[in-house]
Amino acid sequence: MFKKIWAIFIRDLRINTREFITIWLLAMPIIFALAINALAPSINDSTVRLALVDGENPVQEEYLENFARVSLFENEEAVRERVEKRDDYIGILRDGDEYYILTQGNENQAIVDFAKTLQVLYTLGYDIEDSTAEIIELGRNTPPFKKMLVNISILFGSILGGMLIAINIVEEKGDNTISAINVTTVSRMGFVLGKSMMGLLLPLYGSITVLLITGFGYVNIGQMLLVVLSATMLSLLIGFVEGLANDDMMTAVASFKMIFFPVGGAVAVAEAVSDKWQWTVWWIPYYWTYKGTGEVLSETATWPRMLLYTGIIIALCAVVFIVMIPRVRSGLEKS
């Protein structure tokens, strides 16, 4: 049986690599990962941006660069022009022996205060080494925004797996080839497994690609794949149903996009809503995937917790499976 499942998988792989839309799906994780690297700030990036006159005080310039993003301008007029632009730039300018802070007036007060404090510390000659405070790290060594983007990309990858299934099933329907498969020794389960392999491998490939390119290669890959695979099962099931229900590729993909509503809702609630309202999205399997993946990315995941999340995902998928499997069975019979 494995030989036949493999033959179906290899056929799909061969055809998929000849199609623009599937090559695009394969390229997406790489594009996402590169975009995340380009867009997400590093953990050392500062949001405080200072404008100084070039060459006026190189020592001060070097000192401030330790704490903020410093831009140098030709003269005071150029600094003024930069500060007057829409974003938050704070100018630090010399007036005789003293310095003054130049702002537009509508900047975030915390940023202005931070610039003031930096200038005071510089004037007083204090450095980081002068601090007596002991630093205790809580283990957060990744920027939360980047982690969120990586998490969403991985979740998206599991959905793309289902979309690929839908595309492949629509191709089978268009060519009427399911009826031909029905008169071979391949069982229905063998056919479903063979067709599922591309949809399973795409999220695995996508997750690992995103993790490696975005610098999360150190996380527990086993825990990550466990959670991703369990969520992918649901995507595959929806992929089969949409593939069998639609006769052309674009309609299938368009129908499949509906899945982004619960996924988007789950991510939004997980990120932006207080703990007491999280239960509202417990019914969405992707919520648990997002939560589990988030913990893996933060390196706070434990195997018992990941197994718990996987169990919840599988239980929720089982409900969807029971509801949808008659449609899959009937679709395969009629095709």
Binding site: A7, R14, E171, D175, N176, A180, I181, T184, T185
Partner: peptide, 24 residues
């Protein structure tokens, strides 16, 4: 079958070679 049902994106030879793998 009365209605042709072959994989349009595969060559004739690939079609037959694929089906050959589905029998014991």
């Amino acid at each position: 079958f009365e209605q042709s049902n072959v994989y349009n994106k595969m060559t004739a030879k690939e079609n037959l070679a694929f089906y050959a793998k589905l029998f014991d």
